[in-house]
């Protein structure tokens, strides 16, 4: 499989990365080089093989359903570019 210029623009939008028209061509070439490299996996027989979900056999750790942390609003917004009253500020999204 290889990607065309339109697909590059679509992926960039899905990834929320602005791509200029001059960048589309080179990106298309680079992505196709990587896709050509991984193409060989299509020939591997994976019939009946389970996809890996955990690299070491382990049961997911669980803990008691209790509040263990919190009350850190000031710390959480401390690194935000724009905040007001412990809220993150973004451009208007709802009219």
């Amino acid at each position: 499989m290889s990607v065309d210029a339109q697909t590059v623009r679509r992926i960039a939008h899905l990834a929320r990365i602005a791509v200029s028209e001059e960048e589309v061509g080179p990106l298309q070439g680079e992505l196709n080089a990587i896709l050509a490299f991984v193409e060989q996996l299509g020939a591997v027989d994976v019939e009946g093989v389970e996809p890996m979900t955990s690299v070491t056999p382990m049961a997911m750790k669980k803990r008691e359903d209790a509040v263990t942390d919190g009350g850190r609003a000031r710390e959480i917004v401390a690194n935000a570019p724009e905040t007001e009253d412990h809220y993150f500020l973004v451009p208007k999204v709802i009219e």
């Binding site: 990607v3 992926i11 990834a15 992505l31 990587i34 994976v46 093989v49 996809p51």
Partner: peptide, 27 residues
Amino acid sequence: RRIMIGTYVLSAGYYDAYYVRAQKIRT
């Protein structure tokens, strides 16, 4: 570049052909 490749292999229609297959090969 890597974010875009990752976005592509996880996108609708390609997930099984790329990501699930790669996880099977990992097994």
